[in-house]
Structure formats: C-alpha cells, structure tokens
Write a protein that binds this DNA or RNA. Structure first.
Length: 827
RNA sequence: GCCCAGGUGGCGGAACGGCAGACGCGCUAGCUUGAGGGGCUAGUGCCCUUUGGGGCGUGAAGGUUCAAAUCCUUUCCUGGGCACCA
C-alpha cells in the first residue's frame, strides 16, 4: 500500500506524539531569534529545582504558560519561553550523603531526565537557552554581582542574632522562617544564634521596592504580602533623657500621644540594659534577660489570656521631654530589638500592648485623646486603649485640637526643640546570604591575617566549588575541611590566607537568571546588555504563590542593583505576574515525595497522551486555584480529541460542492466567530478551563453538522481549519497531525491565530426568556436586532403569556433588548 | 485579633444584576457481532403532578431591585496571608 493511500484509522497518541516531537526538533521550530520583524514577547515560568522527575504539579505549572506562550506566538509575537534549572541547593547534598552520589552528578542527571520530560509535555522551549545555576559559567556571575555590591557598600559582613536551622545546619534569612520559628525548607524548628554573616543591603531600596508595586500588573494579594513584609511606618524618632545622663531614642508612629507616655520599655537585648539597671534591680533584670533568651521567638510573641506580658523594672528613670515627668524604664520582651530602636515610649492610653502592660504592673494611664461624643476617658477605669480619632486632652497647649491636626503640629513643635524628627521605619531587614552549605556559590572572599577581609579579584573568578569534596553524615559543609580549597594565598599581599567557606543563598541564583536567557553563553559579563534589553521586562511571569515574598522581592531588589550598575534600564523585572494554584495529591494534601504521593506524568502520557493530559490539567478548574489531583475526567479529554480528529479526518473525503442553505451557513459562521472570540478572550483572562469548554462545545456542534449538507460548503472547511488552529496551543501534537490531514503546510504552530468579527459572532435570531413577576413563564425567539418594543410585542403574542395576563393589570413592563422581557402584574 | 480569597448537583466546575448548574466526569435507559478503559442516542438539582404544568433551590438570616448565586448588612464555615512592628 502506498503512503498516499494510507488510511488514518484513528487517533493514537503513541504514534502521533513522538513523530511530531522529532519533526519539531528537526525543523527547530522553537528556536528563538534575538529579534525578528515581530515584537519580542517573553514568557517566563519560575524555573524548577532539578529534584529528579516532573510530577503533574509541574505539568500544571509549566504546560499552561506554554499554552499562553504558543497563543502569543500565533498572535504575531516573537515569543521566548525559556527554561532552566535552579540547580544549587540542599536536596543534592542530602542525596550525596544518603546515596553516596556526588551532588553534581545527581543534579546533572536529574536535569537530563527533566529536560526529556519537558519535551514529552510538548513545551515550546528553546533548549539552546537553557541555564543551570550550578554551572561555573553561571555562578561566577553571582560572585561578580557580589563583588560589585561589596564595592558599592551593598554587601557587608556583620555579627548579630541570626536564625539557625539545626537540621539543615545553616543560617536562614528572615524571609525563610515561617510561623515565627519554622524552617521554610525542611520544617524544622529554628533558633537564633549570634554569628558573623554576609548581608545584602536590600533595605537601601525599601522605599523603591514599595513604590514599584504600584507599577506592575501583579495579583493584589502578592502586592499586599510584599507591602506587609516591607512594612513602612511613618512616625517620629524621639529622644528621652535618662537620669544617668544618656539619651534613649525611641521610634513611635504616634508622637502626638507623648504627653501620655508614663513609662518606657527596652528590649532585653538592648545595649542599655546593663548600664542603666540599678544595683537593687540588677538580679531581677539579669534573671529576666536570661529567661527571655531561652524563650523561643514564638513563645515571646504569644499574647493571650494564658500568656500575660512580662517585664522587670530597671530602677532607672527617664524624663518625658514634653512635661518633665519622671517615668520608669522597664525591660520587657514584648519590645523587639529588631524593630525601630529596640526601645519604646509606652503610652498605655493609646496602645493596647502598653495598656496591658500598665494594668499588669500598675503603671499610670493618662488619656490624651478623647473620643468625640463619648464618655470622658479616665485612666483609672479604662478597659482598653483608645486608638481612634478624637480631641486632644492632657497635652498642654495642644488641648482641644482634633487628633489629626495635632499630630503634624506636635511633630513640628518637638522638632523645633530638637527633641524629635519625623522618621520612617521599616520592617524589612537586610538579606542574610551566607549559608554553611557545600552545594552553592562560594562567596568570593579570602581572610588574610595581614590584610583582613579581602575580596577575590574579578579576574580570578570563578572561585570554583571543588568537586572532590567528602560528604559525611555530620551535616557540616565539606568545604570547611577541604584543605586545598580553604588554604589559599592572599590576593593583596600574597601571604597565606583562608577562603570563606560559606556559600550563597540559592535565592541569589534566581534573582537574575532570566536576564541570562537572552545570552546564556555570554562570557564578558552576566549577560549581553543589548540582547537583554530586547527581552526586558519579562512580559509574563508565572509561578507559585509561595514565592510571593522570597524570590520575587529579592529579584526586584537585584534588578534595581543591576540597573544601578548600568546593565538594564528596567526597575521592575516582571511586568505581569500570574500565580497558579497548587495541585494537591488525591487526599487533598501537598504532593510530597516522601509520602510517595507524587503523581508522575509518564504513565499518564503513555496511557492517554500528552495532549489529553494537558487538556485535563487546563480543564480541572481555574488555574489560579489549583486543587486535589484526580484523573477522572481525563477520558473526557480523550473523547474530545477523538471527535475533533474525526471532524478533521473526514474533511478530506468531502468535496466542495453546492452550498447548503444560506441560513445554515450563517449559523455556522456565527458559531465559528463566537467560538474564536470565546477562546481568545479566555486565554487572555487565563481562564483555560472555560477555553477548553468552548472548544468542546464547538466540536460537539461540528459533529452534529458533519452529517448535513453543509460539509460541501467552503464555510465548513474554514470552520474546521479554525478548530485546528484554536486547538494548537492546547494540544500541540494532535493539532499538528490534524493540520497535516487538512493538507496544510507544516507547521500549525507557525500559523496566525484566527480572528473574529464581533458583528458575525451573533446569531440572526435569539431566544429570550419572558417573565411574569420575575418568574420565567415562556421563551420567545426574536431577531437579534429586535427593539424593546418589538420584544414586548412578540412576548404578548405568546399564547401562554396572553392567558396569564388575561384580566390582570400590567403595572410595569421591562424589556432589555437581547436579554429578556418581564411583565409586572397585579391582581 | 486584622486583611484577603472562597462556600453552587454525586464530583470538578460554569454563569458574576436578566433562562442557575455551561462543559466534563459519573450514573440510568436504549441502540451498536469488533466483550473495550469502544461508539452513538436520550435522560440526570430536589419535591409535587395523570398529562399541561407547578413549587422549592447557589452555607444561614435579613435587605435593595421589575429581576440577586451575583449588590448591601449581619452571621457561620473553609483556605491563605499578617499578627506584641511601637
């Protein structure tokens, strides 16, 4: 049998998919040019950690952006949908210890397997642009960025209390600690240790990081999380003189309540604790400080019925600058050393925490704001702090002013006297980037007994991670004991020196990786600035909500640093952000590898085909929502594909001939345009589940029509071709096959997206409901152009309606053209 | 405690002032000599009814409206975020 005579018996994904996978590879249709006559459009999806295999959650996260990217390409953009691997990190080290396999080998093998699986998915990835962050060619630029920041004073080494994860044997950034004391990575309880570490000065950009959120098309909840994390508060810094002659600075958002400050509180870690505590109080204070140190951060922060506030009087007194009152200074752990100055002026009448403390220790309460029209407040009888607006009282010359007016006046007044200055305080801390781990970017620093801390010169980069490391189950980084790595010479004096053995937080890697896709082989810098410019900012960034703060905040910070180095013009890296929901395992819990609850795609692909799996994932529900995995329903997607296949395969067997009725043709045209509109709009709004529904409905209609005369009309051919074009982004394999079946030239993925005419997308006649008193009593078919009056006339003509209106008084008639008719009757 | 999102058939979900349950799964019945995880047809929210039809239904209770799943108020539940940040 000749090839031309071969009959396509039916849809078999096992033959269709490998065939086109190879054809695409041979024709390199996913190779992305740096620029073309079309506008560039960059679709980025958060690159995965190479854990070994892609599970259906990965498919959910990666195949849907692929659909969008493919649609954008058909719509006339030069689309880049790059992929890489976030290849440094702890799991590789754990695997090394457990299975005696080197992290590098483990990682690169996983990358190979996952690359294969991405191809199975049919993703539109240009692998020539692949980035793996554990490549020395990549991470040397982490080191380069670090050195630039060091030079600009944006990187620094400092001691202080830092979070330590005993399980991962490393410090963590504040952002990586959940629920007060839980390791974001492994779930272990973390605690604080006093260690010298490397930091990046992200707080220098706090203002800009906050303001920039207004300019991006991101989900509001992500912006809110970032705003909360940055935590800007406007207020003032006030100085209180202590009786011992020193001055205690505090930050407050309510300088207007300073007349009500009846005591002060300093954090147990505050440097003043020792010097101001009187002899009589020393024992008590010391004991308190020790106790609060052993308390976990979480314990300290609990405030409810069973956990009363605690604190101890230091014996010292301060002078309230506005009324010269002598007020006691307490030490209490409800004041945090890490925020503001680590000391507060306590105004129990205007702050609930101070109020509780005052009640507990019998300290005076002086109201300074009187609610308008309420009972006069009395410090002795108040039951809670009053934080609302009102009239200022007990505040000298400011008495009688509305609180909102008094606030700026009081700041100005205090400022004049040199007692206060308006100040903005931030919750954001600098980013701790040192990690006591092996599988990461070595921090390019050398310690020399003569010269001190010496940065490795740029021309000596990269500082390569030694591959001959020894992995022992102690959890300690093998770099520490790696003699030939640690022992080096000082770049400045040439004397013996030691290398920094800490590596960088892997969030460094992901803070600029997308720039690298523009020029992944570039050797003269982190990326080719001219090429990167063509793809900046990223038009669409997709990824999980779990990165709302961590990765996205660091990436925004890095982008600004890169901008200030003159390498990019953009400040915001990601113009539009969309978060997918999480695919949970069948039992509704997280798909964890350890519980064996991961659903692998390979078997599903073997059974149903990648196209059906892609459709199924789209059809599960709103992409933003996610939900528990189930494979019920995937058969529905297969049925849909088979029906589409049948429509396409029979087209070749019908010959164009005399038209069917004009009305039938018009109806098909309307259906086609309506479907193009629905599918296009649904893609734009990331509503992939309804997009699939629209395609299914379309095919179901075509299946009915396929037995009618209309198949001999040119309109039919157009309708079927558009079906295949619309399916192409969602089901790339079978669409390519159907496109070929229609006798069209390779490749369907290089075709233009079908357009629709809104005027043609409506049927000539429509059916509208006819209501009586808001209840549907009948339906009537009218011309789509019918006026309100015409609709009413048509409705009145209905037997059933005439009957029910008989003898009743019609109080009101509502007729909305194209929507409905309602008669309001009485009696 | 505060903020956000969400509660709709047996299930996933659709509609987001104008026909509730699109679409899919599942289920029921029938058809089909390719006994298969096949195809096709019809049905499938609940209750009442001989048919015609009628009533009730979107977590709960009120309200606005000719008309409410949709808007407003109160409340309950679920998920997420923040939380002694001065």
């Amino acid at each position: 049998m000749s090839e031309a005579a071969e009959i396509r018996i039916g849809y078999e994904p096992a033959t269709v998919e490998p065939k086109w996978r190879q054809a695409w590879k041979d024709a390199a249709i996913y190779k992305v040019a740096d620029s073309t006559d079309k506008p560039n459009w960059m679709s980025l999806t958060m690159y995965p950690y190479p854990s070994g295999v892609l599970h259906v959650g990965h498919w959910f996260a990666f195949s849907i952006p692929d659909v969008f990217a493919r649609a954008q390409r058909m719509r006339g953009f030069n689309v880049m949908y790059p992929m890489g691997f976030d290849a440094f990190g702890l799991p590789a080290e754990n695997a090394a210890i457990k299975n005696n396999i080197h992290p590098a080998r483990w990682t690169y093998e996983n990358i190979d397997n996952m690359t294969r699986q991405f191809d199975l998915m049919g993703a539109m990835i240009d692998w020539d642009r692949k980035v793996a962050t554990c490549d020395p060619d990549y991470y040397r630029w982490n080191q380069w960025f670090f050195l630039q920041m060091l030079e600009k004073g944006l990187a620094y080494r400092s001691g202080g209390m830092v979070w330590w994860c005993p399980n991962d044997q490393t410090v963590l950034a504040n952002e990586q600690v959940l629920d007060g004391n839980i390791c974001e990575r492994c779930g272990a309880e973390v605690y604080k240790r006093d260690l010298e570490q490397w930091y990046l000065r992200i707080t220098d950009y706090a203002d800009e990081l906050l303001a920039g959120l207004d300019d991006v098309d991101w989900p509001e909840r992500v912006k809110t999380m970032q705003r909360n994390w940055i935590g800007r508060s406007e207020g003032a810094r006030l100085n209180f003189e202590l009786e011992n002659g020193s001055s205690l600075g505090v930050f407050t958002t309510r300088p207007d309540t300073v007349f009500g400050a009846t005591f002060m509180v300093i954090a147990p870690e505050h440097p003043f604790v020792d010097q101001i505590t009187t002899e009589e109080q020393r024992d008590a204070v010391q004991q308190y400080v020790t106790t609060s140190r052993t308390k976990s951060e979480v314990e300290r922060q609990i405030s409810d019925e069973t956990h009363k506030k605690s604190g101890v009087f230091t014996g010292a007194y301060a002078i309230n600058p506005v009324n010269d009152e002598r007020i006691p200074v307490w030490v209490a752990d409800y004041v945090l050393m890490s925020y503001g100055t680590g000391a507060i002026m306590a105004v129990p009448s205007g702050d609930q925490r101070d109020f509780e403390f005052a009640r507990q220790f019998d300290l005076p309460i002086i109201p300074t704001v009187q609610p308008v029209g309420g009972e006069p407040l009395d410090g002795a009888t108040m039951t809670e702090a009053y934080t609302g607006d009102g009239i200022v009282i007990n505040s000298g010359e400011f008495n009688g002013l509305p609180q909102s007016e008094a606030l700026p006046k009081m700041i100005a007044w205090l400022d004049e006297q040199g007692r206060a200055k308006a100040e903005v305080s931030w919750r954001l801390r600098d980013w701790l980037i040192s990690r006591q781990r092996y599988w990461g970017t070595p921090i390019p620093i050398v310690y020399c007994d003569t010269c001190g801390v010496v940065p490795v010169p740029e021309n000596q980069l990269p500082v390569e991670l030694p591959l001959d490391a020894e992995f022992t189950p102690t959890g300690q980084s093998p770099l520490v004991t790696h003699e030939s790595f640690v022992n080096t010479t000082c770049p400045t004096c040439g004397g013996a020196a030691r290398r920094e053995t800490d590596t960088m937080d892997t969030f460094m890697d992901s803070s600029w990786y997308w720039f690298r896709y523009a020029s992944p082989q570039f050797e003269d810098g982190p990326f080719d600035t001219e090429l990167a410019k063509k793809w900046s900012p990223v038009d669409l960034y997709c990824g999980g909500i779990e990165h709302a703060i961590l990765h996205l905040l660091y990436a925004r910070f890095f982008t600004r640093v890169i901008r200030d180095l003159g390498l990019t013009e953009v400040s915001e890296p990601f113009a539009r952000l969309r978060n997918q929901g999480m695919i949970l395992s069948v039992d509704g819990r997280k798909m964890s590898k350890s519980r064996g609850a991961q659903i692998g795609p390979d078997e599903l692909v073997a059974r149903h085909g990648a196209d059906a799996l892609r459709l199924h994932l789209m059809f599960l529900g709103p992409w933003e929502q996610g939900g528990p995995w189930n494979d019920r329903g995937i058969t529905g997607m297969e049925r849909f594909i088979r029906r589409a296949w049948q429509v396409a395969s029979e087209l070749g067997t019908t010959t164009p001939g005399d038209h069917a009725g004009e009305a039938d043709e018009a109806a098909l045209i309307a259906l086609m345009h309506r479907t193009i509109k629905r599918v296009s709009d649904d893609i734009d709004s990331f509503s992939f589940n309804t997009m699939v529904a629209a395609l299914i409905e379309y095919v179901n209609e075509l299946m009915k029509l396929k037995e009618t005369e209309i198949v001999t009309s040119p309109v039919w051919r157009e309708a079927v071709e558009n079906l295949v074009l619309m399916m192409a982004p969602a089901t790339p394999y079978v669409s390519e096959e159907m496109w070929e079946m229609l006798g069209k030239p390779f490749s369907v993925h290089q075709q233009d997206w079908p357009t629709f005419d809104p005027a043609l997308a409506v049927d000539a006649t429509i059916e509208i409901p006819v209501q009586i008193n808001g209840k549907v009593r009948d339906r009537v078919t009218v011309a789509n152009s019918a006026t309100a009056e015409e609709q009413l006339a048509a409705a009145r003509a209905l037997d059933k309606i005439t009957e029910q209106l008989e003898g009743k008084q019609v109080v009101k008639e509502i007729s909305v053209p194209g929507r409905m008719v309602n008669f309001v009757i009485r009696g």
